[in-house]
Design a protein around this nucleic acid. Sequence first.
DNA 1: TCATTTAGTTGACTTTGTCAACTAAATATC
DNA 2: GATATTTAGTTGACAAAGTCAACTAAATGA
Lengths: 149, 149
Amino acid sequence: MTDRDIRKVREFNRFYTSVIGLLDKHYLNSPFTLPEGRVLYELHHHQPCSATELIEPTHMDKGYLSRILKAFLKKGYVIRKPHHEDGRAFQLMLSTKGEKEFDKLNTSSSDLIKVMLQNLSKDEIHVLTTSMEQITEVIGQAKVELSAA
Amino acid sequence: MTDRDIRKVREFNRFYTSVIGLLDKHYLNSPFTLPEGRVLYELHHHQPCSATELIEPTHMDKGYLSRILKAFLKKGYVIRKPHHEDGRAFQLMLSTKGEKEFDKLNTSSSDLIKVMLQNLSKDEIHVLTTSMEQITEVIGQAKVELSAA
DNA sequence: TCATTTAGTTGACTTTGTCAACTAAATATC
DNA sequence: GATATTTAGTTGACAAAGTCAACTAAATGA
């Protein structure tokens, strides 16, 4: 590994941080904040699940998560039932209303990516997605070292 | 552009958000917060410059930036002189102390990337950096559409 | 049985970021 | 050359995002 490699990775990190920053701004024209959006997304994909099961995928503090879920319950996006086997936990699910909101957010997220890709050729998009897959594959392992560091 | 392309891009965005999130945690063992680190970095690279010139690269509100610079002045990391041609502005520079802090932060950022790459083969690193370059190249243009959207 | 752990909630707090009002200097307009 | 507008930077007030520890109640382990 050369200094040049390190520099390139760092350069990309700065670049992609700003891409993600731009993309995240679209939460401004949604009724959700970014962390709420993350919870909505993970809840949709993990349901039915407990709050604890959402901690890892959202990388959130359980207190913070608890408050967001509380707000979602109040707004009627989330339903919860007592857990069958564990009296401390709840089974969380999105309500019909919550699913509708998820769909809206999901669609508008995809639309934004469409806008981003709209002027790219088929080949460019191919280069983009395969590069993304390769990075994911290579870093997938490297990330483990990272969390330990 | 297919739905699969959109999905892949979104998948990568989620993945890389968490990579960046992990990397950003290393600010916890530095005397700087993440936004302070960004200012330190951009100041190092743009100096001598005015505060206004740091707004764009840091993506920061000028008020917020002003407070961070104020703290840097107080800690002696930054020096400022009245601007020659513009009495409203200042010429900002890192002090020797500020440069030292930049070097430390810069070194530890590189070290972290080294840890991340340490178990990758030469080939894997090559795949990684070329993929990163390709993404940067392709999205470089796409980003323009994005900021308008 | 009693100690420890775990799920979730809450209060208090810090950090990060936004917004608008403001001062003073620069630039544009008439 | 006076006056209106814009721009650089500061500040106060606030909102959003995140952390930390204490707490309740249920579950698990010794």
